[in-house]
């Protein structure tokens, strides 16, 4: 582990990048116009946050890589995003369930990062928190609306929850990068955030009349880059197509 802070920042930036790209795949395809706009705006916020996180990662690394280089010139094994965010969109319900599970973790994590000993990280967290608060408000409302909706929407939301639940645990696994960040007062221990996440998620799932899966088995390997699911590679071929075909092309 050469640069824990670089690792840590790419984790943050890759989460928002991969989820931002996934959500942007809905552009022009959402069930109704308002949702299309909301999804595009959410994606835009996430991509904006990516520029800040990966920009800082490149600065910390000091090898002249900027946010674009990190986003477009790395392959699957260099990505440090959570497995949850690379999962395919599925139907609208699955997209919103994925968003809710991520937002519930993200909002809490950013709130803690606002107290980071690194003022640059605290500033990005402060900026992002305002946006992520909207995301969480909307994804919670949608999960409740669809879960406690029609028979069809309820079944689909329960299926989405069951499908995505095995990817929740990874958000709270701590490793040596996290330990190094905790030691320097840069970031909280992910494991310490599970309680608040559970409270929030339980409240929303209850209101949505959905059943939280009993099994807490968790797939791992996204944030360490050790083993991504097959979906990330496919996504990158789309996202990085231009830079792969025409390396270093610019406007």
């Amino acid at each position: 582990m050469t640069q824990p802070q670089f690792e840590f920042l790419t984790r943050l930036g890759d989460n928002t990048l991969v989820l931002g790209h996934r959500v942007s795949e809905w552009c022009g395809h959402a069930p109704v116009l308002e949702e299309d706009i909301a999804l595009a705006n959410t994606a835009l916020d996430l991509i904006g946050q990516t520029q800040l996180w990966l920009g800082l990662a490149g600065e910390v690394e000091g090898k002249g890589r900027d946010a674009d280089t990190l986003a477009f010139h790395r392959d699957v094994w260099d990505f440090r995003s959570l497995l949850l965010v690379e999962q395919p969109n599925g139907d609208f319900g699955q997209t919103m369930m994925r968003q809710f599970l991520f937002d519930a973790w993200h909002s809490n994590y950013l709130a803690q990062l606002m107290d980071s000993s690194d003022s640059r990280i605290a500033a990005i967290a402060e900026k992002s928190t305002k946006e992520v608060t909207y995301h969480l408000e909307r994804s919670s409302d949608t999960v409740i609306g669809l879960g406690d909706g029609t028979e069809e929407s309820h079944v689909r939301m329960q299926k989405a929850l069951d499908r995505l639940w095995p990817f929740v645990g990874e958000m709270f696994v701590s490793d040596e990068v996290d330990a190094a960040m905790v030691a320097e007062g840069i970031a909280p221990d992910p494991a310490s955030l599970r309680g608040e996440f559970d409270t929030l998620v339980n409240n929303v799932l209850t209101a949505a009349t959905l059943t939280r899966p009993q099994d807490d088995f968790a797939h791992k390997g996204g944030k360490t880059g050790g083993r991504h699911t097959e979906h990330l590679g496919h996504m990158l071929t789309q996202m990085q197509w231009l830079q792969r075909a025409y390396p270093d092309a610019s406007w």
Binding site: I37, A38, N41, Y134
Partner: peptide
């Protein structure tokens, strides 16, 4: 309220 999001990030409908 129609939607929490609008034609630009700063607006709602």
């Amino acid at each position: 309220r129609i939607s929490q999001f609008g034609s630009t990030p700063c607006k709602a409908q």
